[in-house]
Simulated assay, not measured.
Amino acid sequence: MKIFYAGPSLERLHEEYAKKGLLDENAPVKSSSSAVVNAPIGKVWKLLADMASWPDWRSDAHVVELGEMKPDATFRWKIRGSAIKSTFAVVEPERELTWTGVAMGMMKAIDRMTLSETADGQTLVTVEESMSGPLLTLFYSSAKLRKGHEDLLRMLKTAAEETAHV
Score class of each variant (00 low, 15 high):
Phe4Pro: 00
Tyr5His: 06
Gly7Val: 00
Pro8His: 12
Ser9Ala: 13
Leu10Lys: 03
Leu13Tyr: 02
Glu15Asp: 14
Glu15Trp: 11
Lys19Gly: 07
Lys20Ile: 09
Gly21Trp: 03
Ala27Pro: 00
Ala27Asn: 02
Pro28Ala: 10
Lys30Phe: 08
Ser33Glu: 11
Ala35Thr: 05
Ala35Asp: 03
Ala35Ile: 06
Ala39His: 02
Pro40Asn: 11
Pro40Cys: 07
Ile41Gln: 04
Lys43Arg: 14
Leu48Pro: 01
Leu48Thr: 05
Leu48Val: 05
Asp50Asn: 13
Ser53Glu: 09
Pro55Cys: 09
His62Phe: 13
Val63Leu: 07
Val64Gln: 11
Glu65Val: 05
Glu65Asn: 11
Glu68Pro: 05
Glu68Phe: 08
Met69Val: 15
Asp72Lys: 14
Ala73Gln: 15
Phe75Thr: 03
Trp77Ala: 09
Trp77Val: 05
Ser82Arg: 12
Ala83Phe: 10
Lys85Pro: 00
Ala89Trp: 01
Pro93Ile: 03
Pro93Val: 06
Glu94Phe: 10
Leu97Tyr: 05
Trp99Ser: 04
Gly101Asn: 02
Gly101Lys: 01
Val102Met: 05
Ala103Ile: 02
Gly105Trp: 04
Met106Gly: 12
Met106Trp: 06
Met107Asn: 01
Met107His: 03
Lys108Tyr: 08
Lys108Arg: 14
Lys108Phe: 05
Lys108Val: 06
Arg112Met: 14
Arg112Lys: 13
Met113Tyr: 05
Leu115Phe: 12
Ser116Tyr: 00
Gly121His: 01
Gly121Met: 02
Gln122Asp: 11
Gln122His: 11
Gln122Cys: 06
Thr123Asp: 04
Leu124Arg: 08
Thr126Ile: 06
Glu128Ile: 01
Met131Phe: 11
Leu135Arg: 08
Leu135Tyr: 08
Thr137Trp: 04
Phe139Gln: 06
Ser141His: 09
Ser141Ile: 11
Lys144Tyr: 11
Lys147Ala: 15
His149Gln: 15
His149Asn: 15
Leu152Ser: 12
Leu152Gln: 11
Leu153Ala: 07
Leu153Trp: 02
Ala159Phe: 06
Glu161Trp: 02
Thr163Glu: 14
